[in-house]
């Protein structure tokens, strides 16, 4: 079962474990909104070592405002970047800023 719902604001954990990651560093620590729940998949960090990828992880497409991701992003104010992220990289965010797009 996916822990987060579409429309929920989540924050990407900051962590730098050794091995194979599918979480790009530029998005760590950033907050975005769940755009789509994509189902469960084997954990690539485990699969990369020839193991079975369990526990499987829910995968999400999370949408970030470019102006939140980059300092001085001076292209379009409403521009976004969507990133696929596995659940164990996401933390719930208290809905104190209602301004993420």
């Amino acid at each position: 079962m996916a822990k987060f719902d579409v429309g929920e604001t989540v924050r990407v954990r900051e962590a730098h474990p050794m091995g194979h990651l599918r979480t790009p560093r530029y998005i760590m620590g950033k907050a975005g909104v769940v755009e789509q729940c994509c189902g469960e998949f084997g954990n690539p960090e485990d699969l990369a070592f020839g193991r079975n990828g369990t526990p499987r992880q829910a995968l999400y497409r999370v949408r970030f405002a470019q102006s939140d991701v980059w300092q001085n992003y001076d292209d379009g104010a409403a521009d976004t970047v969507d990133v696929e992220l596995y659940e164990h990289w996401l933390e719930p965010m208290a809905a104190q800023h209602g301004d993420a797009q």
């Binding site: 599918r22 790009p24 994509c38 998949f41 379009g76 521009d79 976004t80 970047v81 990133v83 696929e84």
Partner: peptide, 10 residues
């Protein structure tokens, strides 16, 4: 609006 899709996973 320009929407970049980073194809990071599945």
């Amino acid at each position: 609006t320009l929407r970049v899709h980073d194809s990071t996973a599945e």
